[in-house]
């Protein structure tokens, strides 16, 4: 992957991956999408270890689309680790799931999720939703400057 990763899509179901990618590509919203097929892979990508050990930590994704039911490490755990780490906690995390369980909603927001969306069954609605989410977080929403990313102290030390 050459360019900047804009969106990290954490989704185990290949059909959902395909449909999501289709929706995002069609709207020209994502120049670069990274797909992680389970929680572990997502964490390795974000924290540049394991299979993603060579990745540069300075280039985080601008949005994480996170499914909850995931093999190995589940979505809630991924969310918890992302939001607990100073270096990754500002990355917007949108939970995109089939579950509408109250417990999941409450847990998700408590752990710092930025949005919670139930995947609509109807494809038109699904496409509209994904498009809206992408537009909002990548275009409408104002993130901090990229060089402001991460721990300030670490940043300063690294600059010298």
């Amino acid at each position: 992957m050459t360019g900047q990763v804009e969106i990290l899509l954490v989704e185990d179901n290949p059909d959902d991956v395909e449909l999501t990618l289709h929706a995002l590509r069609k709207e020209n919203l994502a120049n670069s999408i990274q797909v992680a097929r389970d929680g572990e892979e997502a964490l390795e990508f974000l924290f540049c270890n394991g299979t993603h050990a060579g990745r540069c930590f300075e280039r985080p994704p601008r949005l994480i689309l996170l499914d909850l039911k995931l093999p190995k490490v589940d979505g809630m755990e991924v969310l918890k680790r992302v939001k607990a780490d100073e270096r990754t906690k500002i990355i917007p995390v949108v939970i995109l799931t089939s579950s509408k369980e109250e417990r999941d909603l409450v847990n998700g927001y408590n752990l710092g999720a930025n949005s919670y969306i139930q995947k609509p069954v109807d494809f038109d609605q699904f496409r509209d939703t994904v498009k809206a989410v992408g537009l909002y977080w990548l275009v409408t929403n104002q993130p901090p400057e990229p060089n402001g990313f991460g721990h300030p102290a670490v940043q300063v030390t690294a600059a010298k």
Binding site: L19, K119, V121, F123, D124
Partner: peptide, 12 residues
């Protein structure tokens, strides 16, 4: 819901 979404998506 998931397989339904897929049927709906791909047929669309």
């Amino acid at each position: 819901r998931a397989p339904l979404r897929h049927i709906s998506g791909f047929s669309k």
